[in-house]
Amino acid sequence: MATGGRRGAAAAPLLVAVAALLLGAAGHLYPGEVCPGMDIRNNLTRLHELENCSVIEGHLQILLMFKTRPEDFRDLSFPKLIMITDYLLLFRVYGLESLKDLFPNLTVIRGSRLFFNYALVIFEMVHLKELGLYNLMNITRGSVRIEKNNELCYLATIDWSRILDSVEDNYIVLNKDDNEECGDICPGTAKGKTNCPATVINGQFVERCWTHSHCQKVCPTICKSHGCTAEGLCCHSECLGNCSQPDDPTKCVACRNFYLDGRCVETCPPPYYHFQDWRCVNFSFCQDLHHKCKNSRRQGCHQYVIHNNKCIPECPSGYTMNSSNLLCTPCLGPCPKVCHLLEGEKTIDSVTSAQELRGCTVINGSLIINIRGGNNLAAELEANLGLIEEISGYLKIRRSYALVSLSFFRKLRLIRGETLEIGNYSFYALDNQNLRQLWDWSKHNLTITQGKLFFHYNPKLCLSEIHKMEEVSGTKGRQERNDIALKTNGDQASCENELLKFSYIRTSFDKI
């Protein structure tokens, strides 16, 4: 039985969820670079991206490699990797027998973001014989899940209580170790020597080791999670996991709180800001991140802002960003909400898709409305799209047979046209069989910064309504002859009103 693990408890099935942008060198404390989270699957090609990484700022997932063999891993080693800020997950990587050479110096898994409450997941690794993470000293947050690894031993010899604050939620089941077939031998045991430290858990006094050649490092209890030197002297209180010299914040392997210019500090002093819960960055760093993602459509890219001495992905609820200094300031009234469309555009074809934009005031991208039916549609669209004030790209209304009016965009005031449909149009209306009105132009103002209007096959939309939009939106004169079809717009509506004058002759039985 794995020490510190839980057996036999019912657990939810383990679901495996399925960018080499360097964020800056980590400095003297770390020998390499800070790398983003990685999802490495199918083959070993991307694994080489770990070569210079000291910190993975995010998670590391290595999974679904069915053609790899043990010899493929023999020359692979990433000794610079010290810390993973989120979680480490391995799933069905064939041929991998140990992690001792792959990650010989991995010391800390912070667990800032977890995989279903777990910071370390080893699942269905069919050839893994031992973990071998002999320098792993601290899992700051989260638990361990090690399950269905039929060859995995050296679990009962690990004292997880020396690595985690609590072992109650560890789930370590259905491994070879369960069948008591392992016969784990710690260093020196074969020669009758006791080389590794022994600890007591559940009444068992057991030597602690990761492999037959690597003991588990056990520091004096007084050192807590700070770690200790090879001689057993406690590291500085700002260290986490390990250090090369005692009581020196510049000799830590990793930091308990924050890293700044080669030393570990309790908090980031001005003019620095907390970033990702582990390091200090200056304003320029946060500003660069903001600008890199301002026009990016890459998933996970955030326009970072500053709030409460932190550089964070977005302002919290009730705050909006001051564009001059990136500071989050309290909103006066309802907060603006910028919604970034991942692929640059979004099609609204149902109430469900409209709900995804609920509360958005600025759309960074283009909207395509293609709704053919739905219950209580006008009210639903207004509830979900009615706060949109600005669209950076274009607005396209296409084959939306259920629409009679666009009044559900009740606050839309600006279409920038930074991206144009077919390279020309910022407003595009095609084949809307029941569209009769755009907006009530006596109450609604709309500016279209650039781009043209396109109207074709809107049989109940009168040309007068379209011409009014040209005047109000500032697009009059931009359109070419064929942009607004004269014969297919309003051709099934009563669009022309003329005053009919009647004269009559009164007659009676005795007068003409």
Rank of each mutant, 00 (worst) to 15 (best):
K224S: 06
N170S: 05
D288G: 14
I201K: 04
V144N: 02
N149F: 01
L120M: 11
I62R: 01
Y319F: 08
H28D: 06
L102Q: 01
G37R: 06
C186V: 01
L44E: 10
L332C: 06
K67D: 06
K224P: 08
D101P: 14
G132H: 00
K217E: 08
M38C: 05
R74T: 08
E57S: 11
C234E: 02
G203H: 06
L90I: 10
P269G: 07
I40F: 15
S324M: 05
L128V: 04
S161A: 04
N135S: 08
I122T: 05
T45P: 15
D39A: 07
G333K: 05
K148L: 15
P271T: 12
Y319Q: 14
R263F: 07
K80S: 11
T140D: 11
N117F: 07
D288W: 13
Y273R: 05
S98G: 15
H236V: 04
H48I: 07
P104L: 01
L99Y: 02
S166K: 02
R41T: 08
P269E: 10
I122Y: 00
N150E: 12
V305E: 02
V55W: 03
A119V: 06
D75K: 14
Q303C: 12
E147S: 15
V265D: 03
C209I: 00
F91N: 04
D288P: 02
N202C: 07
P70N: 09
H59L: 02
I139G: 00
A230H: 12
P79N: 06
F115P: 01
N202R: 05
I222E: 05
V218G: 03
Q287S: 06
N282S: 14
L326Y: 02
I40K: 01
C196N: 03
V265T: 12
P336C: 05
M38E: 13
R279K: 05
T107P: 00
R162G: 06
V265E: 06
L29A: 15
L128Q: 06
G183R: 08
W160H: 00
C315S: 01
F91E: 00
R208S: 15
Y273I: 07
N308M: 13
G188Y: 08
C235D: 01
F285V: 07
C186S: 00
G188H: 04
D75A: 12
F103N: 00
I122N: 01
C264K: 00
N295Y: 12
G318H: 13
N179F: 08
T194D: 07
C209N: 01
G32P: 02
D277Y: 14
T329S: 09
Y154A: 03
C235V: 00
T157D: 01
R298I: 07
Y272P: 01
S143H: 12
E151T: 01
D159H: 05
H236S: 11
G318W: 14
Y118S: 05
G188M: 06
E314S: 10
S244T: 07
E130S: 10
A190K: 08
N135H: 08
N175K: 07
H212Q: 09
G241Y: 04
H214S: 09
I122E: 03
D277Q: 12
L289V: 14
S244N: 11
G300I: 10
C215K: 03
S143N: 04
I62D: 01
L44Y: 08
L327M: 13
G300R: 09
E168W: 13
L240W: 00
S213G: 07
Y134P: 06
G227D: 04
G232M: 08
P31M: 11
N150L: 14
R92L: 03
N138V: 14
E124V: 03
M83F: 12
S54V: 14
E57W: 02
S244P: 04
G111V: 00
P104M: 02
G95M: 04
L99C: 06
D248Q: 12
M125D: 03
R74K: 09
K217M: 12
M321V: 08
L128W: 00
K148C: 00
K292P: 08
M65K: 02
F115G: 00
R110H: 11
P330W: 13
H291V: 03
I139V: 09
L81G: 00
C234G: 01
T329K: 04
P70A: 07
K67R: 12
T194L: 13
H307Q: 12
M137R: 08
R69K: 05
D169W: 11
I139H: 00
C234Q: 01
N117L: 04
L89K: 03
Y304N: 10
G95W: 12
H214T: 09
G95A: 09
V55A: 08
V55R: 01
W160N: 01
F103K: 01
G183D: 14
E180I: 10
N242V: 08
Y272R: 03
I222F: 07
F78L: 10
S317D: 05
H127V: 03
I139K: 00
T229Q: 13
E97P: 03
L233E: 15
S98T: 07
Q303W: 04
F103G: 01
R113F: 08
G58P: 00
G203N: 14
C252V: 01
N195F: 11
F66P: 03
R297C: 07
W210K: 01
Y273H: 14
T267L: 04
L152V: 10
E151L: 06
F115C: 02
G241H: 03
P270D: 11
E57C: 15
T320D: 09
C234M: 01
Y134N: 03
D86G: 09
Y273T: 12
S112G: 09
L64P: 02
I222P: 08
H48N: 13
D248M: 07
M137Y: 05
C215M: 02
Y118A: 02
E168D: 03
L133M: 04
T199R: 03
H212K: 14
R69P: 05
W160M: 11
V108T: 12
I56H: 01
G32L: 13
T157R: 10
T140P: 06
P36F: 14
E151M: 03
S112L: 12
R110F: 05
Y118F: 11
L89N: 01
S317M: 06
R256L: 12
C215I: 02
D101E: 12
D169P: 12
H302I: 14
G188R: 06
T199C: 03
V218K: 06
I109C: 00
C234Y: 02
I56A: 01
R297I: 11
Y304A: 08
E33G: 06
I306Q: 12
K176E: 03
P316I: 12
C215G: 02
C255T: 00
C235M: 00
P31A: 06
T211R: 01
N43F: 08
T140I: 06
I139L: 07
R279Q: 06
I158H: 02
T250F: 11
C243K: 00
N170H: 06
V265W: 12
M65A: 12
P249V: 04
L99K: 01
D75G: 03
